[in-house]
Amino acid sequence: MSTILQAISLRKNFGGVVALDDLSFEVRAGEIKSIIGPNGAGKTTLFNIISGIYRPSSGRVRFEGKDVALLPPHVIARKGISRTFQNLQLFANMTVLENVMVGRHPRTRVGFWRSIVRFPGVRREERLTARAAKELLDLVGLADNAHRAAATLPFGKQRLAEIARALATEPKLLLLDEPASGLNVRETEQAGRLIQKIRDMGKTVLVVEHDMSLVMGISEEVLVLDHGRRIAEGPPREVQKHPEVLRVYLGEDFHNAASAES
């Protein structure tokens, strides 16, 4: 499988705080890769850099072989990276359907003057946009909620709507920032199946997640971060046994006890 995303020696500091510290990793096209790590490990910062919201202090991000780290976010979205947000950022002033339609933005073309005069071509594009958005709502199971105000959706459904919106940009790489946080067990399972379905549509998915059952269940690869550094990387089973990971997650003592036992 070819590499779709490559992070090379990424570093990001905010003032004196180092959020990412010389981080390098690769994502292969068509896989589900999860990033785990304790709070403050730099996971969300990493997403913000990949999606262009932050600029790295140094280092590079290569997407399909091209440098994207210094591009503005809307250009990165057009190139095929889309994302959801940990702290739900649906447009509260719009309906669910409209939210997803915004996601069609980089794949549609009508500009300022054409929309003012509203030529027939404009209307056709508008219809296609709405249809595409509805299909995505179908996919995530929100078809019945299309015309609800986005802000009134329950938590779990807002997460799904964000996924639909992100998919609407036709990403090759989808970044999901804690897709299961705040969801109950059943919803988490559904989310896992949805993520696999998205992968089966030929997309690459990079997930930041705390829910271990989800991570271990769906990922081909897991990357473990701590204090902005990579401490382990590999298939879920290997990572689970990695001594550094045990130490970070379960504390020093447990690690010592575990190694004494073995």
């Binding site: 919201i53 503005p72 889309s82 649906l90 915004v102 980089p106």
Partner: peptide
């Protein structure tokens, strides 16, 4: 208006 960061991430 709804959220600049999200708008940017959606390619706006």
């Amino acid at each position: 208006h709804g959220g600049e960061t999200a708008a940017k991430a959606m390619g706006v």
